[in-house]
């Protein structure tokens, strides 16, 4: 078991967002969490990357280590869990290369960094052409590529992806998921959060369904795609 989460509870003030989630991810898997607006998908990812405080009783272990002992930056730099946040959140005042380099802030393996940058550019050739451009001036699709590339640079045992399909034209969306498959095939475990349930379930091998802060269903993607409740609620009938 790579990542194991038990009784994950998160509140924002008085609002309870997550009511005790249990889930786990194996090494090398692609897993997705689907759910409607406000179900708590982003909150789940933020809890793993320690960007929101969790309530007492929550247990999260990563490779047998207690995740709660790690500061957010150490989750990235020591455990290799990277997070592509909702809405990309690039540093628009920095260039493409600077965004990628910043993600290596805590790394000291210069040679490997250079190789990794090459690798990002081979996965997303568009980024190489735009190296010295300020990331705020990239197109939406290019920005999404950079957001994924940046996460790849920061740590890649696990990648947490928050709606990577958002705002992408269908063709770009497909090539984005191709790229993610390629990254996964090199050994990166992926936890994906999506509103676009069909896309997510086609891409992932397993899925969880989140409703109002509760995990209501889980199973192999094939089963979820056939499940009448899932069909009705998330796949348009």
């Amino acid at each position: 078991m790579l990542l194991e989460v038990n009784e994950l509870r998160v509140s924002y003030g008085n609002i309870k967002a997550l009511h005790g989630l249990d889930f786990q991810i194996d090494e090398g898997e692609i897993v997705c969490i689907i759910g409607a607006n406000g179900a708590g998908k982003s909150t789940t990812l933020k809890a793993i990357s320690r960007m929101v405080p969790v309530e007492a009783g929550t247990k999260m272990t990563f490779q047998g280590k207690d995740l709660l002992q790690y500061q957010p930056d150490k989750v990235v730099s020591k455990l290799g869990i990277s997070h592509v946040p909702e809405g990309r959140r690039l540093f628009e005042n920095l260039t493409v290369t600077e965004n990628l380099m910043l993600a290596t802030f805590a790394r000291r393996d210069r040679e490997q960094i250079a190789l990794d940058i090459k690798r990002v550019f081979s996965i997303f050739p568009r980024l190489e052409e735009r190296q010295t451009q300020k990331s705020g001036t990239l197109s939406g699709g290019e920005q999404q590529m950079l957001a994924v590339g940046r996460a790849y640079m920061s740590g890649r045992k696990v990648m947490l992806l928050d709606e990577p399909s958002m705002g992408l034209a269908p063709l770009l969306m497909m090539s984005m998921f191709e790229a993610l498959k390629e990254i996964n095939s090199q050994g990166t475990t992926i936890l994906l959060v999506e509103q676009n349930a069909r896309l997510a379930l086609q891409f992932a091998s397993r899925g969880y369904v989140l409703e109002n802060g509760h995990m209501v269903l889980e199973g192999p993607s094939k089963e979820l795609l056939e499940n009448p409740d899932v069909k009705k609620a998330y796949l348009g009938g």
Binding site: S49, M51, Q71, P72, D73, K74, V76, S77, S82, H83, P85, R89, F91, E92, N93, L94, E98, M101, L102, A103, T104, F105, A106, R107, R150, A151, S154, G155
Partner: peptide
């Protein structure tokens, strides 16, 4: 790289930890 992290923080403070930068 510290300077670069400072510029990034000036733009969007909240995301910087996700880059492995200790706030």
């Amino acid at each position: 790289r510290w300077g670069m992290a400072m510029r990034a923080m000036a733009f969007d403070f909240a995301v910087v930890p996700l880059m492995g930068v200790p706030l």
